[in-house]
């Protein structure tokens, strides 16, 4: 039986003045790669925050690896890249390597320091995002896209079973976006890591993902990628709130 890794059951959430999420039910199972799409302000980041336990749902439940999110302890199993990850103080005295190593904090455990082995893992992780040459550079001296790649490395370093990424490719150039997505494909396909990816790069990602969820306050579609592709553009435009034309990869000649 495949295990359910994220289980959202009838989640509702409102900020002080407005309801943002209504009756969200969504299951991410072992080995699945979900693309979560929707227009700006549709509640994607809010939902991610609820799944991670940073915000609390007003109604409904969220379970991670079968445990209630409030009491979920095996947090080293999650790798996370936030939408505003490079909002840190740019004068912070830390090297790229130190930042990536911090992704191992929980895994190494209390009262212990990092070992040479941990350092090696961090370097390997930097190699995946092609940032190994920057290991000893100050994090604030990197460009925005380079920083973003470092944060992806930090999410990967603990070899998580679940990757949650909120628009991780913002600011990353096309060539590196392509290699990033092929890496996700490999992590998911070969290592079976479950992925929940928020993105606006609809055309690219819906090709890679196994499943797609369309969010705009409530979930308008969720299911297999093949079913998503069968939908016509007018349906999608309807809940997107403005006309959407998907460019099919065949048309682009890829």
């Amino acid at each position: 039986m495949t295990k359910t890794i994220i289980e959202c059951n009838d989640v509702n959430f409102r900020y002080e003045h407005s309801t943002v999420l209504e009756n969200i039910s969504l299951d991410v199972k072992e080995g699945e790669f979900w693309a979560l799409i929707g227009p700006n302000g549709s509640g994607k980041s809010t939902l991610i925050n609820i799944i991670l336990g940073l915000l609390k749902a007003d109604k409904g439940t969220v379970k991670l690896f079968g445990q209630n999110v409030d009491s979920f302890k095996q947090r080293e199993r999650i790798g996370y890249v936030s939408q505003k990850s490079n909002s840190f103080n740019s004068g912070f005295p830390a090297t790229v390597l130190e930042v990536v190593k911090s992704g191992l904090t929980r895994k190494v455990g209390l009262f212990k320091g990092f070992s040479k082995h941990d350092e090696q893992k961090a370097l390997d992780s930097l190699r995946i995002v092609k940032m190994e040459d920057f290991a000893s550079k100050n994090i604030g001296e990197l460009s925005g896209g380079q920083q973003q790649r470092v944060f992806i490395a930090r999410a990967l370093v603990g070899e998580p079973d679940l990757l949650i990424m909120d628009e991780p490719t913002v600011g990353i150039d096309q060539k590196n976006v392509a290699s990033f997505y092929s890496m996700l494909n490999e992590l998911n396909g070969e290592h079976g890591i479950a992925i929940l990816l928020v993105t606006h790069e609809i055309d690219l990602v819906t090709e890679l993902a196994t499943h797609v969820a369309c969010l705009n306050r409530s979930i308008h579609f969720h299911g297999m990628q093949s079913d998503y592709k069968k939908m016509n553009d007018t349906d999608i435009s309807l809940w997107y709130g403005h006309p959407v034309r998907r460019v099919h990869q065949e048309q682009k000649g890829i």
């Binding site: 947090r75 999650i78 996370y80 320091g113």
Partner: peptide
């Protein structure tokens, strides 16, 4: 040390990782 570093650098990430 490593918990203090993680918390100082990125509080939200530290929280997600269960520190």
């Amino acid at each position: 040390y490593k918990e203090m570093f993680a918390l100082s650098f990125d509080k939200e990430y530290a929280k997600v990782s269960g520190i």
